[in-house]
Design a protein around this nucleic acid. Structure first.
Length: 112
DNA sequence: ATTGTGACCAAAC
DNA sequence: CGTTTGGCCACAA
């Protein structure tokens, strides 16, 4: 069952991230209507059931570093590489791959 | 109720 | 590069 307010919006926003792009936790939280709740996004994503097929690997820290440690980090890195995102060491080039949703698309998705 | 922790963020050294 | 500080909120002890 849901754990916190806004989880559905968070899932929705993450599901909108296109292949080949990445978004930060803070950005996802902001678009989900939860400004400043980046930490909430992280906590929610870690409990995300794989059955939702959510592109959680496209969500990274604000500077592009992969947040998770251990085996899952390799999975995330590989998934990003497979989508054409260049991952150097343990971080991606945010300048180039950061998801930049248009305000128009954002309002359309969130209102409908 | 309080404290410590965490897949975080940003500013400030 | 690195650490500290303050903020955020859910959760476990």
């Amino acid at each position: 069952m849901p754990q916190c307010a806004g989880h559905q919006q968070i899932y929705h926003v993450v599901s909108l991230i296109p292949s080949g792009c990445v978004a930060s936790y803070g950005q996802v939280a902001d678009l989900a209507g939860l400004p400043g709740r980046a930490r909430l996004v992280g906590r929610l994503l870690k409990t995300t059931p794989s059955s939702l097929s959510l592109p959680w690997h496209r969500v990274v820290k604000s500077d592009g570093r992969i947040a998770v440690d251990g085996n899952s980090a390799v999975t995330q890195k590989d998934a990003l590489l497979a989508e054409g995102v260049v991952v150097t060491g343990n971080k991606v080039n945010m300048q180039r791959f950061r998801w930049q949703p248009s305000l128009h698309l954002m309002l359309h998705e969130l209102s409908g």
